[in-house]
Design a protein around this nucleic acid. Structure first.
Lengths: 211, 211
DNA sequence: AAGTAAGGCGTACAAAGTACGGTAACAGAC
DNA sequence: GTCTGTTACCGTACTTTGTACGCCTTACTT
């Protein structure tokens, strides 16, 4: 190990990359900007990660690790499942602009896989068949991540832009006019819990019916 | 209007672009490839659209137009809402790789806005407040598009890739092993209807409670 | 036949990922 | 203290992709 001059390291790169993603968006993360933010030239990054994809993977893992709050919550399976998805949702809240990384990371990072492993543990133990467990994940996951995409969209395309594109057309869209900005903005985390519970209750019924 | 030599036109460009997206994916759509598929040089495209973004917008509109099946279905509001979201879901089924365009197109293309206008018409007429109507859209939309993203993911990252990355780690993930490929694949359109109905029923309750 | 506008194109530049080989600085051996 | 090898960093340059600018050809009009 050579100089310890306070410089680059894998965790440092990930930290800076995540900061760029959070503040400027995923497309704004490029090797030159990342290097500059580290006070280094672009090619130096390649001594720590083989390519950009590897850096994105490391960011995904770093984010996903935060979803593993308490490894094992107690209570009935509904509650444990609920907590797992609340964790996922909090991830999205914390780093909405990194959502595409979270999406792929669920099955492709160690922490993501551990999250999924625990979910499957809960569901199989509750009595779901493997296929049913996969369905639960897909539906709840789609709902959770779908809300994340709504949030991301309202971040990247501000409501004013949408409204601006509509000026002069309001006559064609009287009901859009009545509903207004709320359509282009998603910021009702409470509704996430509602939807999650409704879907969970449905799966509980299914399980009882079959068991 | 000059020559009618069978060549480029705006609809033709959109058609070819959509074909590339459907067969090779959104990232594979670039101006050079698109031009080549039209038997033309890249810069020729710029005589029909000002830039790539405009082409993507036109593709989004072209796709969205297909969601406007019967402009006005009959029946109670639940049924009409259901049909609108089924239409959206069919769009995703038809062109999963264009999903990011659909997502943004819902409020940014004429056809998308008409779809949204009709949805708001149905909901407001049913008695939802504007805010509640926006919530219905956000939750159902998140669910619908979220499933689309799951499908897109299983298209772009084949299950074998996921499994390949897990070889040697199966001991760490016994439950993932039991559930197997189904986790990485989404192909259960029937479940979409289930989830949709469950969420709709919940909103119906809410409406009755308030009205 | 000549003018004119529309459609197509050649060239060239900027942004971004990264291959390749060089260099600097520090560790340990002697 | 000098030598040597390893580690971290970097300069240069090639590739891909979007697109600005201006030329050229075509085909219809008169």
């Amino acid at each position: 190990m050579a100089g310890t001059r306070e410089h680059l390291s894998r965790p440092r790169i990930v930290e800076l990359a995540l900061d760029i993603i959070d503040t400027k968006g995923l497309p704004a993360l490029n090797m030159r900007r990342l290097a500059a933010s580290a006070g280094v030239k672009p090619m130096s990054l390649y001594h720590h990660y083989p390519n950009k994809e590897a850096i994105l993977g490391a960011v995904a893992e770093s984010i996903a690790a935060a979803a593993l709050g308490d490894p094992h919550a107690f209570g009935p399976w509904q509650e444990r499942t609920r907590l797992l998805f609340v964790g996922l949702y909090e991830l999205v809240q914390a780093h909405p602009r990194a959502l595409p990384l979270i999406t792929t990371g669920v099955l492709r990072t160690p922490s993501g896989r551990r999250w999924m492993e625990e979910l499957m543990d809960v569901l199989l133990e509750a009595g779901f068949t493997p296929d049913a467990a996969a369905r639960v994940y897909h539906l709840l996951g789609a709902f959770t991540l779908g809300l994340g995409y709504a949030q991301l969209l309202s971040l990247e395309v501000p409501a004013e832009t949408i409204v601006g594109e509509l000026t002069g057309h309001w006559a064609d869209y009287p009901n859009l006019l009545r509903v207004g900005l709320q359509l282009a903005i998603w910021d009702q985390p409470a509704d996430f819990a509602t939807g999650l519970d409704v879907l969970l209750a449905r799966f509980a019924e299914e399980l009882d019916g079959a068991g």
